[in-house]
Write a protein that binds this DNA or RNA. Structure first.
Lengths: 255, 255
DNA sequence: CGAGCAATTGAACGCTGTCAACCCGAGTGG
DNA sequence: CCACTCGGGTTGACAGCGTTCAATTGCTCG
């Protein structure tokens, strides 16, 4: 209904299929077929990409920005069940309606494929279906991890875990290694962060300020935190160092 | 290491492939190939089927009993991230190690397939990979639903939701329609129920006893509850009637 | 400059986890 | 047959974490 977002033909942003985690593992031929289907869409922060229980007319992957997958209760309570960062796939195949709402948490550029066309391609390309299956499996793993976090950890533990995840995902900016490499940029607002961590903005703020007073992090601004004492951050998170080492991430990539 | 469980050749329990949700959608040919791979395994309550971070040597589906998928923190806190009831699939393809522990919550009979053989079959049978993809997608939906429950609902709300889910899954026993049809059998112990609902046995007990005092349920024994007032149970759960469809009899008074 | 939003801070209440005791049925062994 | 043990389940008292309500600050935008 609302057409605030823009749809561009290919060519504009030259949809970065190569940087999509699913596409990256495909053969050149399949990737070419995918590229033919690709359309770029841009959304402003707050706009809805796919509505909860709404029709899924397209799927795709994030080029830039952040999408949130969220579910809402009849009484209004809502929870973010997943964040989608650049290269992540969104949408669902073989299903008509989306079980979650997908919204732009920031201004966002997406690389989209018409769902039925994508499904048709799936039928022909075994390797593509293969990749999609692996992608959904990883999403399931992430969901299980988050269930553990939501059900057993305190708010401060969750915040610590979230910061470590961000630190793992955001490869340190070019040239930064020691102190500067510990700067974590939070790509979303406190409100979304709270909804993702299953708490409130107030409790979230208290946790962050508390960690700052303890000298664990330093607050540069609302979106940027410097990890001053990573050891204590790890201890607070309740995880072992192995859960956030860059090496463990690369091992999982292989299918 | 522990070989308490028993492995039987086919024929014994005549692995009920037809009652497996994934297998049911397959063609006769594919089903036959699957049946050739099938081996029956039996586990006693408490035994481990697949260890967390352990090798996945086989996959399969539940014939009878209940499996729990659980994750454990370094400090010992643990959370059940999913229950597997008869006809549900367990295990994971294209992955060497299991991200969750899979344990028998009750005495259990499984229908198992060697994982590599199963994967080889997947490569040949598009429809099977198709079904597995759909199965994992549904698991993901369930995980998202549960995240919403864990993060936003109170313990009593979770209990109500859980009972309604059980009521939906367990088709009413033969011949029972009205009052008797409202008897929900809880297939697991309080301890597992608490771990699944992200709470403690004490809080769980209090919630159930409270609902009993309010005349919403009647406690027959620890494993069997009668739903006396389904309307209030639905109201407590925070869901609309549509979320638990088969019980749409409630709305029928108008026509 | 005022409106509006994001973020923070303070105070008080309440849900729920923790610790403890208790009940009860099922084994178990004398 | 009884005493004992053990595990599952229930109940009570209590403290604490976190939500809720409320107020304040700082910033952007019109």
């Amino acid at each position: 209904m609302d057409a605030h977002h823009t749809i561009l033909p290919i060519g504009e942003a030259r949809c970065a299929s190569v940087s999509c985690s699913v596409c990256a593992a495909l053969s050149a031929g399949t990737r070419l077929e995918l590229a033919r289907l690709a359309r770029t869409r841009k959304y402003r922060a707050g706009e809805t990409v796919l509505a909860e229980s709404g029709e899924i007319s397209f799927v795709g992957n994030v080029v830039s920005g952040v999408l949130r997958m969220q579910k809402t209760f009849p009484d209004g309570r809502q929870q973010i069940v997943g964040l989608l960062l650049p290269s992540d796939m969104f949408g669902r195949v073989y299903t008509d309606t989306s079980p979650v709402a997908i919204e732009a948490a920031t201004d966002t550029v997406l690389c989209c494929y018409n769902r039925t066309s994508f499904e048709a391609l799936l039928e022909r390309c075994l390797e593509l279906e293969h990749q999609v299956l692996i992608s959904v499996s990883h999403e399931l793993d992430a969901a299980h991890d988050w269930m553990l976090l939501l059900a057993t950890q305190t708010v401060t533990e969750r915040v610590a875990t979230f910061l470590l995840i961000l630190r793992k995902k955001n490869p340190r900016p070019s040239g930064c290694e020691f102190r500067n490499g510990a700067i974590v940029s939070v790509p979303i607002a406190r409100k979304d962060m709270a909804a993702y961590l299953g708490t409130t903005v107030e409790s979230l703020s208290r946790s962050i300020q508390h960690m700052a007073r303890c000298g664990i992090v330093r607050i540069i601004d609302a979106q940027r935190l410097e990890v001053v004492n990573q050891r204590r951050l790890l201890a607070i998170s309740g995880h072992g160092p192995e859960d956030f080492e860059p090496s463990s991430m690369q091992l999982r990539r292989a299918g």
